[in-house]
Design a protein around this nucleic acid. Structure first.
Lengths: 225, 225
DNA sequence: CCATCAAGTAACTGTTTAGTTACCGGCTCG
DNA sequence: CGAGCCGGTAACTAAACAGTTACTTGATGG
């Protein structure tokens, strides 16, 4: 490229002042990148996210990002994995089997709705990943076993309800979970187009509360005898 | 097709042979661009879609695309508008008020599910548009009035059902539509991540049929007295 | 007390991309 | 018939982008 020439004894003096309080902290830098990447990917999708923007948001630069995560795709996969771990971990803490079957299902529905409401970035990441037909998620080994627990626990609650005669015999655990997730996901992730075409602001607290009650009502109505 | 002589007398001769059967047809070119754009935007989102790819898919080139549609954003909005017009037009042809209220709602649920199933590009476009918080749809004037008809007709059917004593008094038209749309949208648009994490191929005909029955069952169970 | 290594910075590079320009040729209407 | 318009082509350009390189700084164990 270029050598010293005029301005100094060293080979290349590209270095400006550097005012930054440079406290070194690998863990913090790593975490900052992950959090910044979560927001950037959630807001812009995989294709729209900018590596420069992630580095800037994290208060660091691209070099560190590539150092810790390899490349954009690997960083994205880490973000996605962490998002799944987040919801499944919170879900486990519910212990839906501790109450009556009806209460247990109602509680799972409430939890799912509220988690979606408080974590819009999770919904957004799911949307992006599905646009790409789970291209990155499929490569993840960590995620597969994380979900058998959910279906297992839900299955037990349903069985108990059937024995007690409160649930119909055809109730299926996967269907029940998909019903709950559908009603929460669609309402929130599509709120912008829906609010526009129907001329009603779906994110208003009144409407949010009404939909919360609706989800519990629909879920239970579909499995009660 | 080909000119004569030396071909070097003009100022600048950038022109290679040109073998194409150049039949001029503005309407066809326009339609081809729109269809190609629909596929490209659906597959890659607004950020991931490539203008060059659209032109190539349409069997034309970028110049024509900019000539007919202005720029990438305007083309995208046209694609989105056409997609909405498509589903709402097909929906109107149903005339859900012609049968019994229960049959009418069931039919709307079936129609919506099957339309989603046959038009994956529509679901994908909705996802992209919501990622961007309806940024482009909000600019559309054409779309607003298109949706009042749907809610109006649905409202009438529900009222009739309430009078006949088959539906509960609290049934709300927007909620009923959102329920139907939720169950179809989530299952299909998230099929890739869901199939991956639950280890079950949701697109298999057996599962599709089961979910179709489930949607009708849930919808009616949630409003029947 | 210095050799070494990890954390960090910013400028650079090759490629891709949206959008533009220079040019071509068939059809129609005066 | 011929002028000019409109549908069409391909090469060009400026900007943006993912990923790399050249280099600096601070801490620490021998």
């Amino acid at each position: 490229m270029n050598d010293s020439g005029e301005n100094g004894e060293k080979k290349r003096s590209r270095r400006p002042p550097q005012e930054r309080t440079t406290q070194r902290d690998p863990e913090r830098t790593r975490a900052a990148i992950l959090e910044a990447a979560t927001r950037e990917f959630a807001e812009n999708g995989m294709g729209g996210a900018r590596v420069d923007a992630i580095a800037e948001r994290a208060g660091t630069n691209k070099r560190m990002l590539y150092h810790y995560f390899g490349d954009k795709e690997q960083l994205y996969l880490r973000v996605l994995e962490e998002a799944y771990v987040g919801i499944r971990t919170a879900e486990r803490a519910l212990h839906i089997g501790d109450r009556s079957p009806e209460e247990g299902i109602g509680e799972l529905a409430l939890f799912t709705w509220r988690y979606f409401l408080q974590h819009p970035e999770f919904l957004s990441l799911l949307g992006t990943e599905n646009l790409h037909r789970a291209r990155w998620l499929r490569q993840s080994v960590r995620l597969k076993e994380l979900h058998s627990h959910l279906i297992g626990e839900l299955s037990q609650v349903l069985e108990q309800g059937k024995k007690q005669g409160v649930f119909i015999e055809t109730a299926d655990p996967l269907h029940v979970y998909l019903t709950i997730a559908s009603l929460g996901y669609f309402y929130l992730s599509n709120q912008y187009t829906l609010s526009t075409i129907f001329g009603r602001d779906l994110i208003e607290p009144t409407h949010l509360n009404a939909w919360e009650r609706h989800i519990v009502h629909v879920t239970l109505a579909s499995i009660k005898r």
